[in-house]
Amino acid sequence: MKPIRILFRSISSAFKSVIRNLSLSVASISCIIITLILVAFAVLLSANINNFTSDIEDDLTMVVFVKKETTDEEIEDLKKNIDAVPNIRDVVYKSKVQIKDEMSKEDETYNRIMSEWKEDENPLKPAFIISVDKIEVMGETANTIMNLEHVDIVKYGKNMVESLVDIFDIVKKVTYVAVIALVFVTAFLISNTIKITIYSRKNEIDIMRLVGTSNMVIKLPFLFEGLFLGIIGSILPVIFTIYGYIFLYDKMGGVMFTKIISLINPYDFVFKVSAVLVVIGAVVGMYGSYKAVRRYLKI
């Protein structure tokens, strides 16, 4: 019971301290709000980038055209050989008849032209539609397949894929670095606030030490104060995330600029991001105050 009593007294003391040093608390909460809003931006952006990167990765396929004179048995062998190449996720074979049918359905002009072809006049080549695990090494996979027997042409959006991968990679890295930097800035601000609180309560801390208060009991209220500042500071960013993202999603019709880049559905997603913000606020608050307590509370 004693530790629980001490815990509750620490919480109440921390709460009183937040109120007592209101102007200081407001200043640091404001800093936390700004930082967490920026963190929210970065998290929303990087999650969406991850999302449409994987969408694009899922959609990106490689088409392997087979030489015209290849027999069915050879095609069967080729499929086995392609399956054995690393980085292959899925292989679908399409005969020249299937390709003709699909193209006819896709476009009226194709349909008009192709409908005039007799069965043995079909000039199309059979093909394998291949999806890969990692688009970063799609080029290597294509080269390997190109060297297999009976393969005529291997086609994939080489330049587009590579530049997309590069751009997304840079954007992701920048947002990660920004999030980490902002988290440290927040921790530093909280640490400073707690430092000032410690100085303003120096007299009280000295007396507590002298009358035999344990170090833990002296330190706990400051840790809780950091925790409170972090959690209170995360309230506005959470509201901003939930309402801001839902508003943007509705306004933009669930896509960014083009239908290729779809945004993550807000339900569930905004609540997860909000939880992340509260946790970052709380952890960073505690960490900041822990740093200040360790450094400035000489007991």
Binding site: R9, G212, S214
Partner: peptide
């Protein structure tokens, strides 16, 4: 070394509070 914002009672009580007394 009294805490100026606490009453006489509170100045004495806070010692026992910090020890975890009921």
């Amino acid at each position: 070394k009294l805490l100026p914002k606490l009453t006489a009672y509170e100045n004495v009580a806070f010692v026992l509070e910090s020890y975890g007394y009921k």
